[in-house]
Simulated assay, not measured.
Amino acid sequence: MQDLCDRVAHHTGRPIRLEPVSLPPQGPYGLWIEVGGTDYVFYEQETSRLHQEHIIAHELGHVLCDHRSGGVLGEEASGLLLPTLDPQMVQRVLQRSHCGSAEEQEAEVIASLILQEVHRRTLEPTWTVPSGSADVIERLDRSLRHTPDEPR
Rank of each mutant, 00 (worst) to 15 (best):
L4E: 01
D6E: 12
V8Y: 04
A9G: 09
H10Y: 10
H10L: 13
T12V: 09
T12K: 07
R14C: 10
P15C: 05
R17Y: 10
E19A: 03
V21C: 09
V21A: 13
V21P: 00
S22N: 08
S22H: 11
L23N: 04
L23H: 03
P24I: 05
P25Q: 08
G27H: 08
P28Q: 07
P28M: 08
Y29T: 05
G30E: 03
I33K: 01
V35G: 03
V35S: 06
G36E: 09
D39L: 03
D39H: 13
D39K: 00
D39A: 13
D39M: 01
D39N: 11
V41A: 00
F42S: 01
F42K: 00
Y43L: 01
Y43M: 03
E44V: 05
E44L: 02
Q45E: 14
E46D: 14
E46K: 14
S48A: 05
R49G: 03
R49C: 06
L50K: 14
H51D: 01
H51E: 08
Q52P: 02
Q52M: 06
E53W: 01
H54N: 13
I55K: 02
I55E: 01
I56E: 01
I56H: 00
A57D: 02
G61A: 08
H62V: 06
H62L: 06
H62E: 05
H62K: 06
L64V: 12
C65F: 09
C65R: 14
D66S: 10
S69L: 11
S69W: 09
V72I: 15
V72H: 08
L73T: 05
L73D: 01
G74A: 12
G74V: 00
E76Y: 02
A77C: 11
G79R: 14
L80T: 13
L81E: 05
P83G: 07
T84F: 14
D86L: 02
D86V: 02
D86R: 08
P87D: 08
Q88R: 14
Q88P: 00
M89L: 14
M89H: 00
M89I: 15
V90C: 07
Q91L: 11
V93F: 03
Q95M: 07
R96M: 15
S97T: 14
S97R: 15
S97G: 13
H98L: 13
G100E: 11
S101D: 12
A102K: 13
E103F: 09
E103L: 02
Q105G: 12
Q105C: 12
A107F: 08
V109N: 01
V109F: 15
V109Q: 13
V109A: 12
A111R: 02
I114M: 15
L115K: 06
Q116Y: 11
Q116F: 12
Q116M: 09
V118D: 02
V118P: 00
R120L: 12
R120N: 10
R120W: 09
R121N: 13
T122C: 11
L123S: 11
E124C: 06
P125T: 15
T126M: 10
W127S: 10
V129Q: 13
P130H: 08
P130K: 06
P130F: 07
G132Q: 04
G132F: 05
A134E: 15
A134G: 10
D135I: 10
D135S: 14
D135T: 14
I137D: 10
I137G: 04
D141S: 15
R142W: 06
R145F: 05
R145G: 15
H146A: 13
H146G: 05
P148A: 09
D149S: 11
D149M: 04
E150P: 01
E150L: 12
P151R: 12
P151M: 06
